[in-house]
Design a protein around this nucleic acid. Sequence first.
DNA 1: ACGGACATGTAACACGTTACATGATTAA
DNA 2: TTAATCATGTAACGTGTTACATGTCCGT
Lengths: 175, 175
Amino acid sequence: MNISTLCLGILALGEASGYEIRKRFEGPFRHMHEPSFGSIYPALAKLTRDGMVSCTVHSQEKRPSKKVYSITPAGRLALRQELESALPGPDRIRSDFLVTMLFSDILSPDFIDAAVTERIAFYNELGAVLQSNECGGNAGREFVRGYGMAVCRAAVEYLETVQRSTQDRETLTAA
Amino acid sequence: MNISTLCLGILALGEASGYEIRKRFEGPFRHMHEPSFGSIYPALAKLTRDGMVSCTVHSQEKRPSKKVYSITPAGRLALRQELESALPGPDRIRSDFLVTMLFSDILSPDFIDAAVTERIAFYNELGAVLQSNECGGNAGREFVRGYGMAVCRAAVEYLETVQRSTQDRETLTAA
DNA sequence: ACGGACATGTAACACGTTACATGATTAA
DNA sequence: TTAATCATGTAACGTGTTACATGTCCGT
């Protein structure tokens, strides 16, 4: 899924400026994508050239003016066609944490323990952000929110179980 | 986590050829990384130049010879230093499925249903692969295996719940 | 005879990030 | 006055994928 399609999708849910599109991915969906301005602005420019979105400049007081983009009927059609052209491909989890854990045999137990503890905090916080985000919108957002929460819960549960069993083993060794 | 570190880590768990490294990511860990030959071979060449791994050519009968790489003490040290230099960064889930679902409002219900059904099958299969993979190795593999299974279970559970509630709603509408 | 597994490698390409460039307003 | 937020945009760079190039052996 390229940034262009992502922007088009966001605009299908409501008009926004490039800056605002970025902001939408700083909240509950930051674990999915965090596109940079360097990719968003060129994408919006191209979408405009291709007639997928239209752009209006909004002047603001005490703020720089912003370019608000709206999806056009052609853009909506193109988005549908692209998304429905094939079932979505497999998910890929880019996790330095899991890779690190995969090689845990050659790392120090203290480091591993710190990494697990940090990751529990990470997923607890993500879960909390998702929960607090309340039904702030459409069915799609609700689905993704629920999915994220389910996965966060499962991750924390697993990590805590592993950590407890590690601590038990240490207590046993110490005794 | 770049391919170079990934290769080094794999070699820390045992010697392998470039082709074999690729194979290791076709099994239970294919949801994490699926590095291409075009990235593995140059990475191994560079690791060799840098003295991180050593390379021996194994001639085989009825098969092309292969270059088997082994991690060197320097490589093991470098790997530890790199991994322990900082706690792993946040996980990122690249999921065309979730992005599609996020925009489900403008897509056909049939397509959404098909996508969910397919994804349930996907995670059921991944869960099965992880389960069948048995304690085939070190503690790290076991951890990642367990983590993957927990997440798969949670995903399938959530998806099935959503699908059931959608079907209920349809039954209600039809009645 | 043809496709697939084994096996390695290079070159072109796509894509996104980081850094740079600019500039106003506001809170500490 | 220093940093942060708002706001847009370009250029250089890094990293990985796809396609290409080559060759054997095996099953059908």
